[in-house]
Write a protein that binds this DNA or RNA. Structure first.
Length: 895
RNA sequence: GGGCGAAUAGCUCAGUUGGUUAGAGCGUUGCGCUUACAUCGCAAAGGUCGCAGGUUCGAAUCCUGCUUCGCCCACCA
């Protein structure tokens, strides 16, 4: 074994071994309890970033832990077709050839998309493998797989038949670059700097009205270009300032249209001038008002957000160009009163960041309220739990205010909607804006003729479904649902497999997709299979750079996990992430932070190297389990076994409670600072008949406990151990159980006091400026301690780098003390007493202050009466001990 | 506008029903090649737990208010 751990030597080798031997695969196994997780399917266009690394490491830790604990542990992998994102990639490819997708047509374009998918679609999967994830790759799914597509169609049909899907003309978020509708969740608001423009709309007095009217009325707007589509002005009904508007006509500048004047509570009299221009086809609010007041809808834009023929002279300009042109014209006509700087919040496409254009168009929607109902109940009743629990509120808050979901997309890459139209029926009905259901046939396959009129002139809906409309079925569609309508392609798509593994146990995700995905999966699970999709939801933080900025390519602040894997190893990456992933907090990363993992891996490597060399050739094969009968254990042996037991217990319960950080911390602390720093060091001076076995035993168990975190290095070392192994791989080895130990607590205390003695000696020596290995006189406070010191003298001397004397005659001594031992050294050897004196004085002061506080407490009758007896006893005991300590420290000062 | 969260050592964070002298990692300072490991070991410095009240015998922990920061939601022209 080399003196340094080299991950490159091990990682690929072991991953291949695991995968080829089928260790990742999970199948229905009645002898075992199931444990399952479905992966949040990465976009097929994705490349591994730190967020994936974090998310998947957490899942792998849980999956590996449960597998070792004896569960049939399934991790279902797959990728998401990511409609817009993937289409964009191939569109860019086409653009390089000077082509648009329309040039080659839908069919050819989709062909190219599949070619792309076949070539690059497994990139992210291969990268995940480098991370060490133990997914059941035989089950790899893709949301556009044939079988999966069937599930999507079925889901659509079922909802449609229940009346939960409808088509309608509404204002939706339109991305003029992607040329598609987007769901509200896909169009997050961002604040940008803009202006609030004050525009004068000329007034004309109507014949017969008495009041005097001004020449114009001023309207404030942030989007002057939409005025081309204005059909009314609105004021608040309570606003007395504008009552006169009833008596006049408002003329829309530049266009000349006469506008209605309406009153609506939605108008805020304090904002701007208190008069709102109403553009029903280009603003969500205006749309609602227009519906209420029966206004005319005028669409002034094309799908690429250029002005259409409704825009008169501005036709052909894009929306921002039109704004400039209109402002210029208004200014020329003296109708632009002023402008004020104003922060506008506007939706932006989550795929390409283009500013959203609210657009009136015919789209498909899912009625969410009925679906949300049971999904709310499931969480309220605790059937699904969030970790950390605070997300429950966020979830409920969103669900209770849920809006209908726009699921149609005007793109080509995706599940084309299972909707067909009968041309005859539609023409006969002269389909109007309000009657979208005429001539609609919803069906899995294209019907040969119309069920109503018998016509065979039937065509399919052009739109595809929102990608999330397929992802929300993920926890059951991946198993091959629906089972009724098809025969399984293979044994892993059998209904029994689904029934065994579903509901899944934990869903691990970042908070960003709580609404996009998690909430919707809960609704889908309950709606389509009548059962929650997962029992627990673990929400981890977002990965950020060291200054707290989200990592993104455009900011240039990404830390590439693959680079970390190449430089430091996957285990280092995994461990470092888990150690920082706190309790769902965002994590702030810099490259240096990954050194913790590398250093720890190296520590494991070297500790193992030491042990393996030490026991080399001693035994042919060590037994797997500990039999201590008739064996003599040293104090250190007992202590490490005692600590080991505590470790096993806490690791197990931490992992069961999804407290991965605590688990990581615990196993790190034990291995490095207890096992290596103390037990291994002591073992250098302590032999004993079973020392070798104990070292191997603890190492074996630590490798098991560490395996979920650091699968590669642990497997590599474990394979070198000469113990009796129950499986060919550590992956499938059993998770450690606590030992039945009969260890007297006093012995642990005695060990700890020796440990404290060593620490005091080291500090004492340093304080006094003694570098050489000189003799110290150590006097135990009682006889039994005296015996203990005698027995452990060797390692105490060794670890404290002094000669421990039990008898000595010092003419002049300096002394210090621990609770149980007094320590003396010949004054002539002391080089620097001052530092030591100062520290002792400081310590005395600190303890005296503490004592005072405790004394006050104990003289307080309410404390004595009301605090539990246990607490009072403890306080008294503590005070006694501290006062003893102070006495001793004071004595030292006089020497 | 509504909701959620955070504020603890120079930095990043633990601190689970209120009860040892508030912890760790990194960083800093000093010492050290001792039978694995300098990607190491040892020792040390460093904190009125954001502010102000309140509850309590006792508050980093519970309550109220305030300040600062972050996130999410919303039909803020």
């Amino acid at each position: 074994m080399q003196t340094r751990y080299n991950p490159a030597d091990t990682e690929e080798k072991w991953y291949k071994f695991w995968e080829e031997k089928g260790f990742f695969n999970a199948r229905k196994n009645p002898a075992k309890k199931p444990f399952s997780i479905v992966i949040p399917p990465p976009n097929v266009t994705g490349i591994l970033h730190m967020g994936h690394a974090l998310n998947n490491t957490i899942q792998d830790v849980l999956i590996r832990f449960k597998r070792m604990r004896g569960y049939e542990s399934l991790w279902m992998p797959g990728t998401d077709h990511a409609g817009i994102a993937t289409q964009n990639v191939v569109e860019r490819q086409l653009a390089k050839e000077g082509l648009k997708k329309e040039d080659i047509g839908r069919e050819k374009f989709l062909e190219r998309l599949w070619v792309w998918k076949e070539e690059y679609g497994s990139t992210i999967i291969n990268q995940l493998k480098k991370l060490g994830v133990s997914c059941d790759w035989q089950r790899l799914r893709f949301t556009l797989d044939e079988r999966y597509s069937l599930a999507v169609k079925q889901a659509f049909i079922r909802l449609f038949n229940k009346g939960l899907i409808y088509k309608g003309n509404y204002i939706i978020n339109w991305c003029p670059r992607c040329k598609t509708a987007l769901a509200d969740e896909e169009a997050p608001y961002k604040e940008i700097d803009g202006w609030l423009y004050y525009i004068r709309y000329p007034l004309k007095k109507t014949p017969g009205s008495k009041s005097s009217v001004p020449d114009y009325i001023t309207v404030a707007t942030t989007r002057p270009e939409t005025m081309l589509g204005d059909t009314a002005l609105a004021v608040n009904p309570e606003d007395v300032r504008y009552k006169f508007l009833k008596d006049c006509q408002v003329i829309l500048p530049l266009v000349g249209r006469v506008l209605k004047v309406i009153e609506d509570e939605l108008v805020e009299p304090e904002f701007g001038t208190g008069v709102v221009k109403v553009t029903p086809a280009h603003d969500k609010n205006d749309f609602l008002i227009a519906k209420k007041h029966n206004l005319e809808f005028i669409n002034i834009m094309n799908e690429d957000a250029t002005i259409n023929e409704q825009g008169l002279e501005f036709k052909g300009l894009d929306r921002f160009g039109a704004r400039e042109a209109i402002l210029k014209r208004l200014e020329e006509e003296g109708l632009l009163e002023k402008k004020e700087p104003y922060r506008i919040s506007a939706g932006h496409c989550y795929r390409c960041n283009t500013m959203i254009e609210p657009r009136l168009s015919a789209q498909w929607f899912v009625r969410m309220k009925p679906l949300a109902k049971q999904a709310i109940r499931a969480v309220e009743e605790g059937k699904i739990e969030f970790y950390p629990g605070r997300w429950k509120k966020v979830y409920l808050n969103w669900m209770e205010n849920i809006q209908d979901w726009c699921i149609s997309r005007q793109i080509w890459w995706g599940h084309r909607m299972p909707v067909y139209y009968c041309r005859e029926c539609r023409e006969r009905h002269k389909v109007s804006e309000s009657d979208y259901n005429a001539g609609i046939i919803v069906s899995e396959h294209q019907p040969s003729k119309c069920g109503v009129c018998g016509s065979s002139d039937i065509y399919q809906e052009e739109d595809v479904l929102d990608t999330w409309f397929s992802s929300w079925l993920w926890p059951f569609a991946t198993f091959g649902w629906p089972f009724e309508s098809q025969t399984p392609d293979s044994e892993i798509e059998k209904k029994e497999e689904f029934e065994y593994f579903y509901p899944t146990d934990v869903l691990v995700t970042a908070s960003e997709i709580l609404f996009f995905w998690v909430a919707r999966m809960i609704m889908a699970g309950l709606e389509f299979v009548g059962e929650i999709p997962f029992k627990r939801v673990l929400i981890h933080g977002t990965v950020r750079d060291i200054r707290g900025k989200k990592m993104s390519k455009s900011l240039g602040n990404v830390i590439d996990p693959l680079e970390i894997i190449n430089e430091l190893g996957a285990d280092s990456l995994r461990f470092s992430l888990m150690l920082q992933a706190g309790s769902g907090q965002d994590i702030y990363l810099s490259k240096e932070k990954f050194l913790v993992g590398r250093n720890f891996a190296n520590k494991i490597w070297n500790a193992s190297r030491y042990i393996l060399e030490r026991v080399k050739g001693k035994e042919k094969e060590y037994p797997a389990e500990l039999n201590l009968e008739g064996k003599i254990l040293t104090l250190a042996d007992k202590w490490i076994l005692y600590e080991y037991n505590r470790l096993v217990e806490s690791c197990t319960s931490f992992l069961e409670e999804l407290r991965i950080y605590d688990y990581t911390q615990a196993v790190y602390e034990f291995f490095w600072h207890k096992f290596c720093d103390w037990y291994l060091e002591i073992s250098k001076k302590e032999s004993g008949e079973i020392k070798g076995f104990l070292l191997v035993f603890i190492l074996d168990k630590c490798l098991r406990l560490l395996h979920p975190l650091m699968p590669f290095i642990t497997e590599d070392i474990w394979q070198r151990l000469n113990i009796k192994k129950e499986t060919p791989t550590l992956m499938k080895a059993s998770w450690p159980e606590t030992l039945e130990l009969t260890i007297d607590k006093r012995e642990i205390k005695n060990f700890l006091s020796l440990k404290e003695l060593v620490i005091s000696l080291r500090a004492f020596k340093k304080d006094l400026g003694i570098k050489e290995r000189v003799s110290f006189l150590v006097e135990p406070r009682n006889d039994s301690l005296s015996k203990i010191l005698e027995e452990n003298l060797q390692w105490v001397s060794f670890l404290s780098r002094i000669e421990v004397c039990r008898e000595g005659s010092y003419p002049e001594v300096v002394s210090t003390a621990t609770i149980d031992y007094d320590i003396f050294v010949d004054k002539s050897l002391v080089k620097d007493l001052e530092l030591h004196q100062k520290r002792i004085e400081a310590k005395i002061k600190e303890l005296a202050e503490f004592m005072q506080r405790e004394e006050v407490k104990l003289s307080n009758s309410s404390f004595l009466q009301q605090a539990s007896r246990e607490v009072v006893e403890k306080t008294k005991q503590r005070l006694k001990e501290v006062s003893k300590e102070v006495e001793r420290l004071k004595r030292i000062k006089w020497l």
